[in-house]
């Protein structure tokens, strides 16, 4: 059975994925679509037939956003800025979490009986693992439209920001406490050796993060822009 309201909601959702249409645009287009459907049903079409014709006449999800983007420029830019800020939050979160992994990994390695440098390298391993997982999660999130919409919202940014603050406080606490705990387990010299290895962590970011950025840039290569029928 054809459900007009359900089809309408779907149509609205597919158009709404574009960043250039704001809610009032969608309201106006929906009102147009419904007027057209009323007219077509009056002339004897079923609501299903009327819906398909009206939808065809109003234009598709590929061309319309392009036209609206020209008049909604500032809204488009606001959304992009929002994404950049969410990106910064995600970046900070990955860095803080991977640092936490590094100190925790080193401590665990000492606990398991490893010595100076090797414990440091185990910490580094944990750090790389967490960074890679974080980056993989970011890519996966961007590929899933639901999560991307959530992350791209203001609420998503605030949530991530809160996470960064909590994780940073944990990290600061860990950096105070872990040396104290470690020197009880092992000698100061061994602890010093593990800290030396931790300096290599900069390498993790200067290699892994650019790889992520390049991967994303390659994925974002857009198809050629479509031309515009009505614009004066």
């Amino acid at each position: 059975m054809f459900d007009l309201n359900q089809q309408m909601a779907q149509w609205r959702q597919s158009l709404g994925q574009s960043e250039s249409l704001v809610r009032s645009d969608l309201d106006e287009l929906e009102s147009h679509l419904r007027d057209q459907i009323d007219q077509l049903t009056l002339s004897g079409l079923s609501s299903e037939e009327a819906f398909w014709i009206a939808q065809r006449r109003i234009g598709n999800a590929k061309n319309l956003p392009c036209e609206f983007a020209k008049v909604n420029g500032s809204a488009v830019f606001r959304r992009r800025l929002q994404w950049m800020l969410v990106g910064i939050m995600a970046y900070l979160l990955i860095i803080v979490l991977s640092h936490l992994a590094s100190v925790a990994g080193t401590l665990a390695a000492f606990g398991a009986g490893f010595h100076g440098y090797s414990a440091g390298w185990i910490g580094q391993g944990a750090q790389i693992l967490v960074t890679l997982t974080g980056l993989a999660l970011v890519i996966a999130a961007l590929k899933s439209p639901g999560i991307a919409r959530l992350a791209g919202s203001v609420g998503g940014g605030l949530f991530l920001g809160l996470f960064v603050i909590v994780a940073s406080i944990l990290l600061i606490a860990a950096r105070f406490l872990i040396p104290i705990l470690t020197v009880r387990l092992v000698s100061v010299e061994e602890y010093g050796q593990s800290v030396l290895i931790q300096n290599a962590s900069m390498l993790v970011y200067s290699v892994l993060i650019p790889i992520l950025v390049v991967t994303l840039l390659l994925q974002l290569r857009s198809p050629a822009a479509t031309t515009n029928p009505v614009d004066a």
């Binding site: 147009h32 006449r57 109003i58 234009g59 036209e67 609206f68 029928p229």
Partner: peptide
Amino acid sequence: EWTDGMLYPVLHRLER
């Protein structure tokens, strides 16, 4: 025949 939806960006521009 206009692509109906294309009318709205023009209307919004004229309003602005």
